[in-house]
């Protein structure tokens, strides 16, 4: 059971129709991530990194190829419990405070009980924001917002976290801190991580580094 990869993709292709031209973004991507493993993906802008993450997260369907989550087929209903996503631009809900944003991930699955509330509080504390739990996103700095997003991604104890340039909107120092936090938490909880980044230093912190070019890993 522990040998089953968390995620396994075979020959994923994806193309987009842009006007009357078809752009082939992914031309056969193979990827396997083991439980608790951290993988970095680098590649030039427009090389298809975000497109790949959308396929891996099941938000978009590949044209061809197969994808399995922990050995089982991808289903939208499984997503919330199976994986957490961290985006470049945080995407917090502005009307509710930091704690409620973290709790939102679990709220979507079921009405949260005491255990979920306790976990959300603990995660907020774990990302160093216990003083800011009741602040609205607008009252937080960029780094603080991304930490809330990290806590939200971890809320449902997922097997895998997909992070798409999580430091893209942060200054270097803040970005380093967020990456350290993310990697540390994943290691602690045994969560696998796929990290898309432009930053070589951040990529180097992952167990394995991949590079996307011309629609394939090289």
């Amino acid at each position: 059971m522990s040998n089953t990869p968390i995620i396994s993709a075979r020959g994923l292709t994806k193309s987009f129709l842009s006007g009357d031209r078809r752009i082939e973004v992914l031309r056969g991507v193979d990827l396997e991530v083991a439980a608790g493993e951290s993988v970095s993906i680098r590649g030039e802008s427009g090389s298809g990194k975000s497109t790949l993450l959308n396929l891996l997260s099941g938000l978009d369907a590949p044209d061809t190829g197969t994808l399995a989550w922990a050995g089982a087929p991808v289903e939208a209903d499984r997503r919330a419990a199976f994986l957490g996503i961290v985006f470049q631009s945080f995407y917090l809900i502005p009307e509710i405070d930091a704690l409620a944003n973290v709790l939102m991930a679990s709220r979507i699955i079921q009405v949260p009980g005491a255990a979920e509330r306790a976990r959300a509080k603990e995660l907020i504390a774990r990302v160093g924001l216990q003083e800011r739990a009741t602040h609205l996103p607008a009252q937080l700095s960029g780094g603080e917002r991304q930490r809330v997003a990290v806590a939200r991604a971890l809320m449902n104890s997922p097997k895998l976290i997909l992070a798409d340039e999580p430091t893209g909107n942060l200054d270097e120092h803040t970005g380093d801190a967020v990456i350290d936090l993310l990697l540390g938490l994943c290691r602690e909880t045994g969560t696998a991580l796929v990290l898309v980044t432009h930053n070589a230093a951040h990529a180097a912190k992952c167990a394995r580094g991949l590079r996307l070019r011309d629609g394939r890993f090289v």
């Binding site: 997260s57 938000l59 939208a76 209903d77 997503r79 919330a80 419990a81 996503i85 985006f87 631009s89 995407y91 809900i93 502005p94 939102m104 991930a105 979507i108 699955i109």
Partner: peptide, 12 residues
């Protein structure tokens, strides 16, 4: 729009 996208990504 983007928050609605996020809600979908979270499993809504």
């Amino acid at each position: 729009t983007r928050e609605i996208g996020l809600l979908g990504a979270l499993g809504g």
